[in-house]
Structures are given as C-alpha cells and as structure tokens.
Design a binder for these strands. Structure first.
Length: 634
DNA sequence: GCGGATCAC
DNA sequence: TATGGTGATCCGC
C-alpha cells in the first residue's frame, strides 16, 4: 500500500509540473469533453457515425485533433476576462490541492486505525443493505436538441451542427469530432469547426418531442422519473416480471418503440440502481445500451476501473482533487478510505464509499414528487456600470420572477440577489422580507436595498449578469389532501383514484409522506391566510397600490359548500381548531371589509387530483428548464 | 442562516 | 467582439 501511494504521488507531482497551463487547458476544455464517453468508445463511435452518414474525416486528422483542440480553445480564450477568471480559479484550486496534499502527508504519519475501522464498519453496513432486487434503467436521448432539429432539417444530418447561439447547448456527432462540446462558447466552436452551423434553440419544439417520448416510457413504468428534458429513470422490475422479459429485451423493445414513433434514438443503461444505470447509459452512446448485471461481483468490477469523473456528482474540481491524492478510479477509493473524511469531509466520504461499492438509489418516482426548493431567474447582458440601467435589469428580473412564481404557485420567504461582475466573479446577497413575496413590485423593492449596498461596497461595480431567486418557499398550491378539499361533496364529484398497490414500493413511507404533506399544506394555508389578513405589515408593504387583484386571496375557493368564515366568507372546516382563531383574527382587523371586497373578485377553480391528471403531468415532465438535480444522496 | 463554490444538464 | 440559465447541495463561518 505504501509503495503504491508513493508512486501515485510522484505521478501527481509530474502531472502538476509538466506544464504550468495543463490544468487550466483541461479546465478550458469544458466539462463535457472529459465527462462524455471514454476516448476509445468515442473513437469507435466516430467510425459508426461515418458509416451512418458518409461524413468522412481522415483518421490522421482526427488523431491530431485531440492535441489541437485544447490549443485552439486556449488561444481563442487567452487574454479575455473570462480567461483571466478561469486562471484565477485554477490558481485557487491549485493552492487548495496543495493544502490537501500537505494534510495527506501529515495523515500518513499518524495512526488511522480508528478511522480505518470506522470506514470498514460503514462499508460492511452498506454492503449488508445492498439491494440487488430492482432493475433500474436510465434513458438518455442522443444529442437531443440537435436530433430534434435534424428531424425538421434532414440536410443538417450530414454536416456539423450545434444548437445554441452564444453558448452551445448540444451539437451533433459531426460537430463533436471537431471538439465542439456543449457549454462551449459558440465563437470558440466556430474556431474549431469553421463550417459549424449554429441554430437558435426552440424549447417548445424540444418539450413537445420529449412529451412524445415520455408517453412511451409511461407504458413501461407509469412512475418513471423525468430527470431532465432528455433523460429519464425507469424501474422495469415489474414490467419484466409481467411480460416475462429480460431487462435487455425490454429495453430493446422500448428503444425500438421510441425510434419508430419519434424517429429519435436513445441510449440506455441498465443496472441495480440509478447510479449504475446512469453511468451505463453512457457506455454505448449513441443509440446503444449497456447492462451491468445485478450481482455484487459484476458491479464491483464495473466500478473498479471506472474513472471517478464518470460518477454523477464528481466534476472537474473534485476530479482534480482526487487525482492529486492518487484516486483516479472508483476502485482507488478503497485504499484511501481511512483518510477521506479528514481530506474531503464526511459527506464526501460517504459519497465516495457509495461510488466505490456501486450503490445508488433504487426508488424511482415522478419528478413532481420532489419538493421544489427555489424559483429563480437570471440573465446575462453586455457589461454595465450604469445604475439606472442596472435597476431596469432588476425590474425586469422581478417581473420574470413573478411570472415564474405564479406559474409554479410559490412565494418566497427569502429573496436572493445575484450579480456577476464584469470580471466573472459572482456575488449573492439574501434578505428575508417581512412576509413571503411573489409580486414583481415586492421583489424589486426588497431586492433594491441589497443592490444599493453592493454598489456602496463596490463603487465602480460593473456587472454582466443579474438574477433574482426565491428560496424558503411557501406553496400556494392546494393538493388533494388539503383540508379545503376534504369537503365531502367535492370528493364525491371528483373521486381520488389511488395508484395500484403493486406499484407502491413502500406503502408505509408513502403514507407518512402523505401525512407530512398534509400537515405541510395546512401550515402553508394558515401562513398564507395570516399573511394576507395581516394588515399590520401593510405599512411595510411597498405594493399597497397594487390593483391587479393578484395579491388578493383568490387561491381560496369559495364556490363549494363548506363552512365559511362569517367575516371574510372564506370556506373553513368547522371542526378545525384554527377556525375560531381565524375568526378572532378577522374581527380584530379594522380594514377587513376592504380586503373582503378585494378577495371576492374571482374564485379559482379547484384542481382535480385524479390519477389521470397525475400521469399526464408526469409525461408533461418538468416545467421549463427545471432540473431535478440531486446531491450526493438521493 | 449567509455567501461562496461545485455540479448537472 | 464574444463564454448560458435553472436548480440543488455542501462547506466554512
């Protein structure tokens, strides 16, 4: 073990000394070059593409490409503000790595048997709970945006093409051969590939296509999980059992059906959990699938020589830190298990051990069942130090955010202002307004002091981006469990259909979740009520002149029979404890009549909670651009 | 709880 | 000439 480590150290040292700019060049290559499939796989796929589309690129050219790509990117970027910022980040990471290495050197001299035992106990515990009973599939559309564009423009199939104007979001496989990658500035991509065709993105089109695909996936697992616009997880355990099919056959069938009905190719990974499925889906991309068998040995072998960078959650930075320590593959993790906590923290330790063991979640559920934590908007513009212009940007952000909050039915207890300086440095400031906010005027007014403070701290502040985000959300949704909907007549006219029991992996947990949700809904409703009835805060309210009626409590339905509050006339179940408190509160308000007048403008229709609706919203997927990106453990 | 940083797509 | 937007999580303080 000792000799191994010292070898790794020497390699790491060589790496960092070889070229002062090598790590920076690596950074500049962008996240996707290192993330996407191994070189060998890519090379093979180039051959595939050539056969498929008769697009010939001489082999020699391709091989020198790898050398040239980083040079071209480096030269295109050199001297820019963006480049300088990247350089600064690179320097700070390098010094962070130095600290990590000196800590590692100290740790090698001390007795770590306690830590070693703790790590081994943790591993044994996880091993004991390993679940190999499920068949999880990750579906990933191949070059999704580009592929959808090619459906409308078949002529683009044979030439390098990318989607995205300023920054490339997706490019087809011809463009990738030139080194073009998602996340790359378009002008850099054009340097790599002068003939590159850049199309503007058309999200409506991609969403429509994604819905078609999801409709197919739903037949294989009605509780499939949209992970993003072009990715999904399915649990095929039940489907395979019911149809007496092996996982490979089932996935083949599914992919063939998607191709036939949508003319789009998808790649798939099959494994015992989401993490393995996700990694496996990249193995035979594009238009391929790969399965890791559900036995411990297969999984350990698969993970053993897997570069850590392939694991979801390990990005460029963590990759470099791990590499410096001597961890290049998931198999390397084991050797350092006793010092991982001290080097990287407890969460990272647990995460890495999970990666080493090939463990991941087996619970797949519709994305909508994940609780949203924030709603925000931001936009980039040509840099400006003009205070009025910046206020206009803030106003615009506030208006955009109001729309998003209205669409998602949330308010924010906390408001976050984000700016990116002309140097690309990012700053955020947050505040807790006197009440949850959702109106543009409020958002603007409570964000402005943060901006003013920043302008005082940085008198010459020039910014290139401004954003607003609400966190600590307050839901204004009424779910089926909400007490306002427990009215018997309502339940009768719109019965709730329960999901089939056999699809329910953990009824107890589901029940607890439902109960928790119900309590949360009640709390939310009460909080909203108290906020809206709280005229005390109106002295603080900068939007008292609001005439849109939007701030009135329309979200409370008044069209159904129930027990209305005699003061504000809103429905309330009489048995609810808070009813009396509510009436007392109403009575104590002097300006209540004014409020009632506003609140009676128009009631909002009650939403149906039928299963049909649930599934259709699952197919519809995530709302615009919303990503369900989960951290180390989900 | 706040602000910075990292990560995914 | 020029390097995105949305959302989540973790860490140090």
């Amino acid at each position: 073990m000792d000799s191994k480590e010292s070898v790794d150290e020497t390699e790491a040292e060589l790496d960092s000394n070889r070229d002062a700019h090598s790590s920076l060049k690596h950074q500049l290559l962008g996240p996707s070059l290192t993330k996407a499939g191994q070189d060998a796989v890519d090379q093979r796929k180039v051959g595939y593409s050539i056969r498929q589309h008769q697009y010939i690129l001489p082999k020699e050219t391709r091989e020198t490409e790898g050398q040239q790509v980083s040079e071209i990117i480096y030269n295109a970027s050199k001297g820019s503000k963006f480049f300088n910022h990247e350089e600064a980040r690179d320097r700070s990471l390098t010094s962070k790595i130095e600290r990590i290495l000196s800590l590692k050197a100290r740790l090698e001299k001390v007795d770590l048997t306690t830590e070693l035992r703790r790590a081994d106990e943790y591993i044994a515990e996880l091993e004991h709970e390993r679940d190999l009973s499920q068949t999880v599939v990750h579906i990933d559309c191949d070059a999704f945006f580009a592929a959808v564009e090619e459906l409308d423009r078949p002529d683009l199939k044979t030439v390098p093409m990318a989607v995205g104007r300023g920054v490339i979001t997706t490019c087809n496989y011809h463009a990738r051969k030139f080194g073009c990658r998602s996340g790359m500035a378009a002008f850099v991509a054009k340097k790599l590939c002068p003939h590159l065709i850049c199309l503007p993105q058309n999200f409506d089109k991609y969403n429509a296509k994604a819905r078609e695909i999801r409709a197919i996936l739903a037949d294989y697992d009605p509780r499939f999980e949209s992970a993003s616009i072009d990715e999904a997880y399915l649990n095929l355990t039940a489907y395979c059992a019911e149809n007496n099919l092996g996982p490979e056959e089932a996935v083949h069938r599914m992919r063939a059906e998607v191709l036939e009905k949508t003319k789009l190719t998808v790649s798939a990974g099959i494994g015992a959990n989401a993490k393995i499925a996700k990694i496996a889906s990249n193995r035979n991309k594009p238009n391929g699938q790969f399965r890791v068998l559900n036995d411990r040995a297969s999984i350990m072998t698969f993970m053993g020589d897997l570069p850590v960078r392939k694991v979801n959650g390990i990005g460029r930075v963590f990759e470099r830190e791990l590499d410096a320590v001597g961890i290049k593959t998931c198999g390397d993790i084991y050797r350092y298990r006793s010092m991982l906590t001290k080097l990287f923290g407890e969460k990272a330790f647990q995460f890495l051990i999970h990666a080493y063991l090939g463990l991941g979640r087996t619970r797949i559920q519709p994305a909508e069942e994940y609780e949203r934590k924030s709603v925000g908007t931001e936009s980039t513009f040509s840099e400006t130090g003009d205070r009025q212009q910046i206020r206009d940007k803030l106003r615009w952000a506030a208006e955009e955010l109001e729309k998003d909050l209205s669409r998602t039915q949330f308010r924010g207890r906390t408001l976050v202002l984000k700016v990116k300086l002309h140097t690309f440095e990012v700053l955020t400031r947050q505040t807790v307004p006197p009440r949850a906010v959702h109106l543009a005027h409020d958002l603007y007014t409570f964000a402005l002091p943060m901006l003013v403070k920043l302008e005082k701290e940085l008198p010459d502040m020039k910014i290139r981006l401004l954003g607003l985000r609400c966190t600590n959300l307050l839901s204004t949704k009424r779910t089926g469990n909400n007490f306002f909907n427990l009215n018997p007549s309502l339940t009768h006219s719109q019965p709730i259909e329960w999901r089939p029991v056999e699809r329910d992996p953990d009824p107890e947990q589901e029940f607890e979740q439902a109960a928790r949700q119900e309590r949360q809904d009640d709390m939310n409703e009460l909080e909203i009520l108290s906020q809206e009835l709280s005229l005390d805060s109106e002295s603080l309210d900068p939007t008292k002149d609001d005439t849109e009626g939007d701030s009135s409590p329309r979200h409370i339905d008044t069209s159904n029979q129930s027990w209305d509050c005699p003061i504000c006339r809103r429905p309330y179940p009489s048995e609810d404890k808070s009813f009396n408190a509510h009436v007392d509160f109403c009575l104590s308000q002097q300006k209540i009549k004014e409020l009632v007048k506003r609140s009676s403008l128009e009631p909002l229709p009650v939403k149906s909670q039928s299963r049909k609706r649930k599934i259709s919203s699952n197919i519809k997927g995530l709302t615009t651009n919303s990503r369900q990106k989960r951290g180390y453990f989900h």
